[in-house]
Design a protein around this nucleic acid. Structure first.
Lengths: 232, 232
DNA sequence: AGCCCACTGTGGACAGACCACAGAAGTACA
DNA sequence: TGTACTTCTGTGGTCTGTCCACAGTGGGCT
């Protein structure tokens, strides 16, 4: 086993044992290196991996905010992994779409069953309304679309689903942008997407999970079909 | 932007451009460092991240197999991320279970629609049959159970779903083991699980996606309920 | 012809140094 | 006494140089 892997394992053990709760800082790189009897570069490599996985955040300087702070951003690591693999071209877009359908459809169903927080629902509606602005260019529209989907998934309360979808965000954004560019009459498509968004939110608001699930499924698959992304 | 991030971005760009198809090797660390005008440690940190994400595999020595070879193991990176976050205790088991339900139910539905490869189906059945061995201890039984679920998901042909589920494997294994230990009459539960497995495979084999989806849902949720893991 | 061994290129690891940064502590001055 | 400035200290970021272990490769010896 390589040194940095050993370091990683030791840190992971410590994390499991609750040695450094979220918000706490890991020992300084030099201290950790001495403590574990390894060199600083080895410690750094381990911390790099933790950072890429969204487990810690590093900062230079002095004071409480400096150093490697334990955080918990599942989306960071999952996101980077999904992004890199989609980028490397081996993860087909159709797989990403299908996975979205499964997760988002399930998420809105759960959201409909549990949503009571009107503030959260209002946040979702904000994105829907923002998309109604006729001045909005396509990029900004799609930005709100992404936020809408993520916020909606968040309503399910399932952190893992939210993290995976957040992770897929960049990958989704790139294919959606390509799809939007392929649409002939964008204004009409945009109007339809808006209407579908409203329908989904309304279904969630009235706790109609089955309907919300159904609408979400059609919404994602419909866009994918209309843009012909599947035939590439 | 930090140096290793710049290196990572450059490598990612190269990957996107198809500069190093899968199976090819990245330039040597020293060469890459000189080419990009950075130090070797910075290059190493970038490669470490790629390695953790399952994008490359490194090997010492000489010859074609040495160096950083581009591979594609989405499960590696996603798995590590899910494992670390579940381990860090912030991802509740119920979220993991729910995510499994969504993904696996969808996966078997897709599998039923497309499965024609009898060899792949036979591989799944092997695990089912292996679980029938009365000599099998609980740990080995659960091992086969995990393999069964992953192989089944693989039949869907969706690499992303398979990767995510593979990534969740370790997390799932730990909660399933805890659940199995909480069961009063294990032999009876084991028999039921076996029967459910058979039912799912049969449904997939006769292309009955709806039934397979339904059975899978009940299978996962049933075990979760029976073991009372949700009440902890 | 076959075997052995040195060579070469690779990642793995380490030591040591210097820098940039940001907060903390100490100090000078009003 | 209070405020502003300066210095100190601890932190990650980065680089240089070095050595090691390893695994093919190819030449030379038997």
């Amino acid at each position: 086993m390589r040194t940095h892997e050993r370091v990683l394992a030791q840190i992971e053990t410590g994390l499991n044992a609750g040695k450094w709760p979220i918000g706490e800082r890991l020992p300084a790189e030099r201290a950790l290196a001495e403590e574990l009897g390894v060199s600083r570069p080895s410690v750094r490599e381990a911390i790099r991996i933790l950072e890429a996985m969204g487990i810690v955040r590093t900062a230079v300087g002095s004071g409480p905010s400096a150093g490697a702070t334990v955080i918990d951003r599942p989306a960071a690591g999952l996101g980077a992994a999904v992004r890199l693999h989609v980028a490397s071209g081996t993860l087909p877009v159709s797989d990403v779409v299908r996975t979205r359908v499964l997760l988002e459809a399930g998420a809105v169903r759960d959201a409909a069953a549990r949503v009571t927080d009107d503030a959260a629902l209002a946040r979702v509606r904000e994105h829907v309304e923002a998309m109604a602005d006729p001045e909005l260019d396509v990029a900004a529209f799609l930005e709100h679309d992404q936020d809408f989907h993520i916020e909606l998934a968040r309503l399910s309360g399932n952190q893992l689903v939210e993290a995976i979808l957040s992770g897929m965000r960049a990958a989704v954004a790139s294919y959606v942008a390509a799809g939007a560019a392929a649409v002939e009459e964008w204004p009409r498509t945009a109007a339809r997407l808006r209407a579908e968004h409203r329908g989904i939110v309304d279904a969630v608001a009235r706790h109609d999970g089955a309907e919300a699930e159904h609408l979400m499924r059609d919404h994602i698959e419909g866009f994918y079909r209309e843009t012909g992304l599947g035939e590439r």
